[in-house]
């Protein structure tokens, strides 16, 4: 039953339960042993794939339970008192089993709506709905290295903070003057594009303009990511004719998010 200590550390790493001392131990092991380092990376991927699969399965399970509880047992027709009693008894006997499910369904309609929104992949989803689904996982906020820290403008730092706190309206207001300057960076244009998409009243057309600028300024960094978000912006704008060729290009090149792009293309067909 026992696993070697290094695999216990691996388990805790995946569960994010390492103490500081254990973190150092694992780090040292991974530095000394290239094979073990590879095992760690593969184990992370294995667990991530498995977890996603399980969660999707459970979400569908909950959805199926919700559907079951919406089907009411039919009323028995009266043929004789005895028959009726027996049938009514059967209905009453069913109720304890289904009652808690009905209560759960009444209490949690928003949860099931969320499941349908997040997990139900079918062609009846509109393009904007599909875009919202894929945009719901936010792109990581920009990082600031120590060497940059003192050189960065206050507005850019404040904009990053607003982005981290998901205050996209504020972030956009801070980023707009930055991107209008001649010194604007590709990163600033990229994040402005993201804030336009994440805002409550998204502005996909403006988002696309910003992504394209980031790609012009730094194609190496933003070509692939930009294409993905431009495709989502077209979907958000309900323009499948523009989103489709871009998604096909992402799949053909096996660029960033190519498997997700493939799923979108398959859903739409």
């Amino acid at each position: 039953m026992e696993r070697a200590y290094k695999y216990e550390l691996l388990d805790k790493y995946i569960d994010q339960e390492l103490s500081d001392k254990e973190r150092q131990e694992l780090d040292a092991l991974m530095t000394e042993d290239e094979e073990f380092k590879e095992e760690v990376e593969v184990a992370v991927m294995m667990n991530a794939s498995f977890n996603v699969e399980q969660k999707q399965r459970w979400a569908k399970l909950l959805e199926a339970e919700a559907t079951k509880t919406s089907v009411q047992p039919s009323q028995p027709t009266k043929t004789s008192e005895t028959d009726t009693d027996q049938k009514e008894t059967k209905v009453r006997q069913l109720q304890p089993r289904t009652r808690w499910l009905r209560i759960a369904a009444m209490l949690l309609p928003a949860v099931f709506a969320l499941f349908l929104y997040l997990f139900l992949a079918n062609s009846s989803q509109t393009a904007p709905q599909m875009a919202d689904h894929y945009l719901s996982n936010r792109h990581q906020a920009p990082t600031i290295t120590m060497s940059q820290g003192n050189d960065l403008s206050q507005n850019w730092k404040t904009a990053i903070k607003a982005y981290q706190e998901e205050k996209y309206e504020s972030a956009a207001n801070l980023l707009e003057p930055l991107t209008n300057s001649t010194n604007a960076t590709a990163e600033q244009h990229f994040y402005l594009g993201l804030t336009y998409l994440y805002k409550e009243k998204a502005e996909p057309v403006k988002a696309i303009q910003q992504f394209e600028k980031s790609q012009q300024l730094n194609p190496a960094q933003y070509s692939a990511e930009g294409n993905w978000y431009i495709a989502l912006a077209h979907l958000k704008n309900d323009d499948w004719t523009k989103a489709k060729p871009l998604l096909e290009q992402i799949v053909a090149n096996k660029d960033w998010k190519w498997q997700t792009a493939k799923e979108i293309l398959e859903e739409q067909e």
Binding site: Y13, Q16, V44, M45, A48, S49, V52, R138, H139, E225
Partner: peptide, 26 residues
């Protein structure tokens, strides 16, 4: 690692491609 790999959204492009390749290999 696990949260990022699960969402596969905040991974660098290289890591994201590795994850895709891994899932196909599995």
């Amino acid at each position: 690692p696990l949260t990022k790999a699960e969402t596969a959204n905040n991974l660098s492009q290289q890591k994201s491609n590795q994850l895709d390749a891994f899932q196909a290999a599995w």
